[in-house]
Amino acid sequence: MSRNNLVVPQAQAALNQIKYEVAQQFGIQWSPDGYNGNMTTRDAGIIGGNITRTLIQIAEQSLGAGARRF
């Protein structure tokens, strides 16, 4: 049972698409039925890290140039 609750439940499809695209980009098998229990920890980390990187890039683009003032 997942304890992660999406703030915007409609975002689930977009997140699944990003997972699939990242996995495909790195040549990692992604199960279409949603079960990935046979995935190595390394592969899961690659996917998770790159999803985070992708979401940060999307947020920065949506905020415009002002996001780089840190």
Rank of each mutant, 00 (worst) to 15 (best):
Gly49Ser: 15
Gly64Glu: 14
Ala65Gln: 13
Ile58Glu: 14
Thr41Lys: 01
Ala59Phe: 07
Phe70Val: 06
Gly64His: 15
Ala44Pro: 02
Ser31His: 10
Ala59Glu: 10
Leu55Lys: 04
Arg68Gln: 09
Asn50Ile: 01
Met39Thr: 02
Asn38Gly: 09
Phe70Tyr: 11
Gln17Arg: 04
Ser31Glu: 05
Gln17Trp: 01
Leu6Cys: 13
Leu15Ser: 11
Leu55His: 03
Ala11Cys: 12
Gly48Gln: 11
Gly27Phe: 12
Ala13Gly: 09
Ser31Phe: 07
Gln12Ser: 08
Ile28Pro: 08
Thr52Ser: 04
Ala67Trp: 08
Ile56Tyr: 13
Leu6Gln: 09
Asn4Thr: 12
Ile51Glu: 02
Asn50Ser: 05
Gly37Glu: 05
Gly27Thr: 06
Arg42Thr: 10
Gly48Met: 09
Ala44His: 02
Ile28Thr: 09
Arg69Leu: 07
Ala14Val: 03
Val7Gly: 13
Arg42Phe: 08
Asp33Cys: 07
Val22Gly: 04
Gln57Val: 03
Ser31Gln: 03
Ile56Ala: 11
Phe26Val: 05
Gln12Ile: 05
Ile18Leu: 14
Tyr20Ala: 09
Ile47Arg: 08
Ala23Ser: 06
Gln12Ala: 11
Gly45Pro: 13
Asn4Arg: 13
Ala67Cys: 02
Ile18Met: 15
Gln61Ile: 02
Arg53Val: 12
Ile18Cys: 12
Arg3Cys: 04
Gln12Lys: 10
Ile18Lys: 14
Glu21Leu: 01
Ser2Thr: 00
Ile51Asp: 04
